[in-house]
């Protein structure tokens, strides 16, 4: 359980995080989402104890990060942005150093080997980190974060700079780790959050603009719902007038081209609207090519919250 209360952090006079409060229950994968420079990394650095908050408190399993940093550090695994590693060491040497630093003394060898297996690093023990590809460096970065089996994993943009295959592999690994750990990951890639997270915290300009499950956020954001119809008809102008007269709906938007037209109909009356529209179109010699309910995608929500909300940026 992570509890962040009124976290405030400024660099000099620049406030990077302003009055941020949230809770993360144990055993879930949480996505910290926000544009570059929104304050994601700052929040993560405060969670790991690397940066002291200017104000506010962070409790991890009831322990205050500022008061008991060494205890917090042994409960958390952290993968900083850009995966910094000691490139002059071999994979095994490096993981051995981490194991010792983390106090993994009993079964050190087995622990390192298990972690290497989990991260797909078997056979790479003697390779210099400098000689590894980006994807494998990322694996070493994850391996060092999970080596001491921490209850909490903090991953700062874990898939940045990887190719699509590597991204899928790392995501699988994170999903697997999320089964028995609390994972906080930051990203500005929306698909990542959709693919992994059961809770999302959207941050913009140092403030939380949305917090909840993806569905909750979409629900809160959706406002009025629309039905979008693509139709094929001989005269779209006549169709529009008839449509408005008969159904008492005035189509909001009309995208028109030679072969098809797109109507956006407000649908306050729920499912009944879709049904009557469908019947009406069929009865009036027009062809319905497509009909769908317009729900906000995470991308729409993201843009709405981080652009409209902070348009002074």
């Amino acid at each position: 359980m992570i509890q962040v209360e009124s976290l405030y952090k400024s660099y000099g006079t620049f406030p990077a995080v302003k009055n941020v409060s949230f809770e993360v229950p144990s055993g879930v994968i949480v996505g910290l989402l926000g544009p570059n420079g929104a304050g994601k990394t700052t929040i993560m650095k405060a969670l790991t104890g690397y940066h002291k908050p200017t104000a506010g408190t962070i409790l991890i399993d009831g322990k205050n990060v500022e008061e008991d940093p060494i205890a917090i550090k042994s409960m958390t695994g952290y993968l900083p942005e850009g995966v910094p590693l000691y490139s002059e060491m071999t994979v095994y040497e490096y993981l051995e150093f981490i194991a010792e630093a983390r106090g993994v003394i009993e079964h050190k060898k087995e622990t390192i080997e298990n972690t290497m297996r989990k991260c797909g690093l078997i056979g790479f023990g003697d390779v210099l980190i400098d000689h590894l590809s980006k994807g494998y460096k990322q694996r070493v970065g994850l391996a060092q974060a999970i080596l001491h089996n921490p209850a909490i994993l903090i991953l700062d943009e874990p898939t940045t700079g990887l190719d699509p295959n590597q991204i899928l592999e790392i995501r699988d690994l994170i999903r697997d780790l999320g089964k028995d750990k609390t994972v906080i990951l930051s990203t500005h890639i929306l698909q990542e959050v959709e693919a992994l997270c059961s809770k999302i915290i959207i941050i913009n300009e140092g403030e939380i603009v949305a917090d909840g499950s993806p569905e909750e956020i979409a629900d809160a954001m959706k406002g009025e719902e629309n039905i979008i119809c693509k139709i094929k008809t001989s005269s779209i102008d006549k169709f529009k007038v008839d449509f408005a007269n008969y159904l008492k709906y005035s189509p909001k938007k009309l995208v028109e081209n030679l072969f098809q037209s797109e109507l956006v109909v407000p649908a306050q009356s729920g499912d009944a609207a879709a049904e009557s529209i469908f019947k009406w179109i069929v009865e009036h010699d027009s062809i319905l090519l497509e009909m769908r309910r317009d729900t906000l995608s995470l991308e729409d929500i993201f843009v709405k919250l981080t652009r409209e909300g902070g348009n002074h940026a």
Binding site: T48, Y50, L85
Partner: peptide
């Protein structure tokens, strides 16, 4: 290299 951050977040 950024390893500084890693080092400072380990129990040292």
């Amino acid at each position: 290299q950024g390893t500084y951050e890693m080092l400072m977040t380990m129990p040292f």
